[in-house]
Amino acid sequence: MNQHKTKELKAVNVISNELLTDDVHYISVDKPFDFKAGQVIAVAMQPTDEPRLYSIASGISKKHLSILFDVKPEGELTPPLSVVKPGDTIYISEPFGKFLCLDSPATWIATGTGIAPFISLVESKQANNVNLLHGARTLDKFFFQDYLEEQLGNNYQRFCTTEASEKTTEGRLTSYLKNSENLPTNNKYYLCGSSQMVIDVREILIAKGVAFDNIIAEIYF
């Protein structure tokens, strides 16, 4: 496959469009391709539009393929994508990418909608011997937290920067990492989120003795 030339985008039916919080949607579409957990697809409203990339946020055995995204009011794709209805058509590429998180033991670190590939991995039953750390600004941004808690138990930790609850740790994920005295240095670390998060977390991990080749990051751009 040559990376998503427009002619390679495929029309798919929208199955559902779920509003998870005020600006985050979880959209499911027909699944025309098999994929590997952790991969991305290119998404566009029209076959001639410039597509954007999204991590697949559903398991490999699920009937439908889903993505998780927040609406960027200035963006060209997410405002129209946020109002699609079941039966509408959108365009997606074949899945691609290599953020497959195959190694364990591993620590998975996500912020905001960066949780998407990890949801796919957990739903695909590929989350053995992993710790998942998720940072978010508000409590409603821990997407699929009940499911992740059920699947991962204590290996799922939430860090909330502005609100408190008994299930979350108050404060920044980066502060937790900085203050941790027993970070496993031989684990693989898989990071997904904004580039700034990736940079900051990677610096902390390296300062804590984690070798750079044990840190693999997926960035949003």
């Binding site: 040559n2 991305v40 691609f96 290599k98 693999i216 997926e218």
Partner: peptide, 26 residues
């Protein structure tokens, strides 16, 4: 090498060097 480039450059997770070179052949 894919695994090594991933450690240096996160873009390799999405657009691999192999695909990049494949695109140049067009």
């Amino acid at each position: 090498f894919n695994e090594e480039r991933k450690q240096l450059m996160p873009i390799e997770n999405v657009y691999t060097a192999e695909k990049l070179v494949e695109a140049l052949h067009d």
